[in-house]
């Protein structure tokens, strides 16, 4: 599986794609694969403050609940309402099914995250695909 090189990745399997001072956040294809059928995505409200490394929501598959961890700090400016009625879209295309957009507090936080190549290596070492 190729991971898009236009974004950064966390070890908790989120991706973040920055565009100036704003960024889009979602979960990786590896994450959706591990979760199985996604049936529920719980996202923060617009205006909520999120902190890098802390949970900002959760995603539920048929069998389990998993926390979502913020790749960077900021303020939520938009959430993907489509996922409230069609959470399975994350299974179909995790890298385009974004979850939220944030106004970044500190762009340099992204420097500490994994590149696509590093993330792919990390997943392989974890015993993933």
């Amino acid at each position: 599986m190729g991971y898009p090189a236009d974004r950064k990745y966390t070890k908790q399997h989120e991706w973040i794609q920055a565009n100036g001072t704003t960024a889009t956040v979602g979960i990786t294809d590896h994450a959706q694969e591990e979760l199985g059928d996604i049936v529920f995505v719980d996202l923060p409200k617009v205006g909520a403050e999120i902190t890098a490394g802390k949970t900002f929501g959760s995603v539920e598959s048929v069998k389990a609940v998993s926390d979502l961890y913020a790749p960077a700090s900021g303020t939520v400016t938009e959430t993907n309402d489509d996922l409230a009625t069609s959470p399975e879209k994350v299974n179909k295309d995790a890298h385009s099914s974004w979850m939220m957009k944030i106004a970044l507090k500190n762009q340099s936080e992204l420097d500490a995250l994994l590149s696509a190549a590093d993330y792919e290596k990390f997943v392989a070492e974890e015993g993933g695909h």
């Binding site: 059928d37 598959s61 069998k63 299974n91």
Partner: peptide, 9 residues
Amino acid sequence: PASIGGGII
């Protein structure tokens, strides 16, 4: 796997 018709649902 979904590729052979699987997935819990």
